[in-house]
């Protein structure tokens, strides 16, 4: 037994890698499905914040991420834009990360095509801006000063959607899908705290804990944390909106479930071997 534990403690890292890969690939290949419980929580709070907006409202989504976190944040972008367009809300896309503008375009165009939303009437992608929080501060007095034209070069004044949206305070809700800084922190500091615009967020699972402080103070109206947050939102949409399609995150929850179990299994093995080794060393010392 002692020798077995010793061998387990020194298991080759390639074994861990293979088991991790299998724990992701097998559930996806077998299309395993686990029920996702939806109760009150930050995901539901964000859903309610959007669902209570009157049709015709305007929402800014800031795509503050890049391809490295696409797996977690793009499903949120797709689910949120689908909900917004389906609810008759107009969407202004922008990005504080250079590559976020292209990812946002992909999400918005995909949702707009399937729901019949018109570019420049119902949605627009303003593109990337440098300056992070400083840009948001400037947008508080004039969005046009930061974005004289949209991502495709269309002048601000030629975009029908932007006619009644001159400054940040004119939007009804801002949502930052954030993989780091600049992201939710900047939006809370500038849009919410300075101009009083309600702010919602979506972030990677690893950064979700730091944003719970904003939920507690009401500075965030809701939060989608990681793939689970995206899956929560997709599940809420399916439950509340008849005919809503399945999303990208829900199938990933089975893979994430099994991979979490595998990691936990390794941690347990490591600790059993560690505790057994410690007892052995203590015994040897006596």
């Amino acid at each position: 037994m002692g020798r077995l534990l010793e061998r387990l403690d020194k298991v080759d890292r390639r074994v861990i890698y293979i088991l991790m890969a299998a724990s992701v690939i097998v559930p996806l290949a077998l299309k395993l499905d686990f029920p996702i419980p939806i109760g009150s929580g930050p995901s539901m709070d964000l859903y309610m914040a959007i669902d209570t907006l009157p049709p015709g409202s305007t929402v800014i989504i800031s795509f503050d991420y890049d391809p490295s976190t696409k797996a977690e944040l793009q499903p949120m972008a797709v689910a949120l834009t689908r909900h917004l367009f389906g609810h008759g809300v107009r969407v202004i896309g922008m990005a504080m990360w250079p590559q976020g503008a292209s990812l946002g375009q992909q999400a918005m165009a995909q949702a707009a095509d399937s729901l019949g939303a018109e570019q420049y009437e119902d949605w627009v992608n303003l593109g990337y801006t440098v300056g992070a929080g400083v840009s948001l501060l400037r947008m508080g007095s004039s969005i046009e000063a930061v974005y004289p034209q949209d991502r495709d070069g269309v002048p601000y004044d030629s975009i029908p959607l932007m006619r009644n949206v001159r400054r940040l305070g004119d939007v009804d809700l801002a949502i930052s899908l954030s993989a780091g800084d600049p992201g939710i922190h900047s939006w809370v500091m500038m849009a919410k705290d300075t101009y009083g615009v309600p702010v919602g967020g979506g972030c990677t699972a690893v950064s979700a804990p730091e944003f719970y402080t904003y939920l507690g103070t009401g500075q965030l109206v809701g939060l989608l944390g990681g793939l689970r947050g995206a899956a929560d939102y997709e599940t809420i949409l399916r439950e509340r909106i008849p005919g809503a399609p399945g999303g990208l995150a829900t199938p990933g929850m089975a893979a994430q479930s099994i991979s979490h179990l595998v990691i936990m299994g390794f941690i347990v093995i490591g600790n059993v071997a560690f505790i057994a080794g410690r007892s052995k060393r203590k015994g040897g010392a006596k």
Binding site: V11, I16, Y17, M20, S259, I263, F266, I267, G270, F274
Partner: peptide, 15 residues
């Protein structure tokens, strides 16, 4: 994911 799993196995000990 692979590095986290490997690091958790080797470093996450109830010392």
């Amino acid at each position: 994911a692979f590095f986290v799993a490997s690091a958790a196995f080797r470093a996450f000990r109830s010392s």
